[in-house]
Structures are given as structure tokens and as C-alpha cells.
Design a protein around this nucleic acid. Sequence first.
DNA 1: ACCGTCCTACTACGTGCGTAGTAGCATCAA
DNA 2: TTGATGCTACTACGCACGTAGTAGGACGGT
Lengths: 126, 126
Amino acid sequence: MKLTKFELEIMTVLWNLEEASVREVCEALAERKRPAYTTVQTIVQRLEQKGAVKRTRKIGNALMFAPAVTRKSAYRRVLDEMLELFGGSAQPVVAQLLESGKLTLADLKAIEQAETKRTAAKGGRK
Amino acid sequence: MKLTKFELEIMTVLWNLEEASVREVCEALAERKRPAYTTVQTIVQRLEQKGAVKRTRKIGNALMFAPAVTRKSAYRRVLDEMLELFGGSAQPVVAQLLESGKLTLADLKAIEQAETKRTAAKGGRK
DNA sequence: ACCGTCCTACTACGTGCGTAGTAGCATCAA
DNA sequence: TTGATGCTACTACGCACGTAGTAGGACGGT
């Protein structure tokens, strides 16, 4: 189940709010790139068709929506997608991030630290 | 100038061969996912329109094409695109790569090494 | 009971992309 | 020279997506 950039933005709002109506999603979007209400509505509907969100209840006459997939799984999906573009190898990705300054050596060390702890704690859970 | 997955695959062939005809590109693609000759041709034409490849010369009646953009710049573009999806922060990306096993701690160390050397050598060129 | 407001459901449209067919020119072998 | 083969240029089509309008139902205040 592939999500587009814009769909991911909507999902991000929902992941943050846990549950929201179309209007709430709409208002959570930065004014600068806020499309028409009905546009957001359409995307939410498509997300529903894709199974990425589900209706939870009705408040007044407004439907409430909640994510049906986790942020993590969606991110994983995006990452995998991109790795494929890079021929499946992850090192170039990190190297490129470093080179363009998006990532510092300090960042790397920090991540390393966290990772060492994570795997040590659970031995690589589940 | 945005390239799609398929377009990037074609570009990869061209980056590897330096220069190639449509037929050569075609034959360089894994048989499993090799579309019709004319499909490849269409993509190459679109790449030309986008300015990603350029005609170099004619051999027999076949045109030769060469990349007009570097692999690096294209990769950077893809990365930036993806970072935006992740809210601009690179750490989660790396963390996710680690967690899914696409990247090991050893990989990280190696990259760190290389990076340390790289920046030391040139003091962060240009 | 009625009107305005808000929401949903449906429809629509342009663009990009993956896919490929066809017409017609070029080239090469016989 | 002529026929086969290969290449280019053009055209086409369906789907996904971003974008949004419209019709009509629901609800709340007066």
C-alpha cells in the first residue's frame, strides 16, 4: 500500500492527533500549502480506500478518522522504496546524507549509541 | 528535474555504460522486467525532454545517448525528496535503516571512517 | 417549521507515467 | 534495385494523483 507525499502529510497529521475530522486535518496543515477543504476530503477518502485510515465515529454530522497503519510501517515502506532506487544498498544513502550536510558525524555517533543500547536491551526484539 | 523509479533505472544503465543506444539500454535491463523496446524508447525520449540525457552521435541509423546529469546529483535529488517526506530530519532515516537491518553498526563505523578522512583531506571541499 | 451552515458523496479534469502500437525512413545484404 | 530489418517519431490509452466543484442531507438556532 503505497502513499504519496501529500497522503503522507495527511497521515502525519492523523498520527499526531490520533483521531481527527477532515476539518481538523485541514486546519492542521500549514496555511501556505493548504488546499481546498474538499481536496483534503478527497485524499482522506482515498486513504480510506487504501486502508490507511479508518472511520472511528461520528461527531455531529462529521466523521472522525484515525490511522489504520503505524507511522513506523509507513516510513519503513518509504525507505524500502527508496533503497530500491539506490540499488538496495544503504551505505550510499548515509554517505550522501553526510556529504550534503544533512547528517553530521555527531548525529551518527548518537544514533550508534542508541542502537547499541537498543539491541543490547532486547537482543533484537521479536 | 524529477526522475521516476523507472527513469532512474534507465539512467543507471547509461551511467554504467557512459553512452548507449536504446537497444543497448534495453538489453542491459534484467530480462524479468524488460518492457517492450518502444517503451524504453519512450522513456529515453522523455529523459531527453527533461534534459537528463542528450544525444551524442549516430551509429548506423541508431542514435546514441549519454547522461546529461551525474549519478550523484540525481541521487541527491532523490534523497532530498525523501527527507522532505520525513519532515526534513535525517536521523530517523538512519535509525530506521538500522532497525530494519538494512544497515549494520559495522557499516556505520566504516562510513564514519571514510567521512572523517574525507573532510580531513579537503576541509569540506568547495 | 425554516434557513443558513457544515459535512458527505459524487463527479470532473489536467498531468505525469508506464505501456505499447504504427508509420515511415534508413540501411544492408543479395 | 529491391526486400527485409531496424530505428525513430508520433500517437494512444489507462491509471493514479492533485485539485476542486456541486448536490443534497443533517443539524442547530430562531
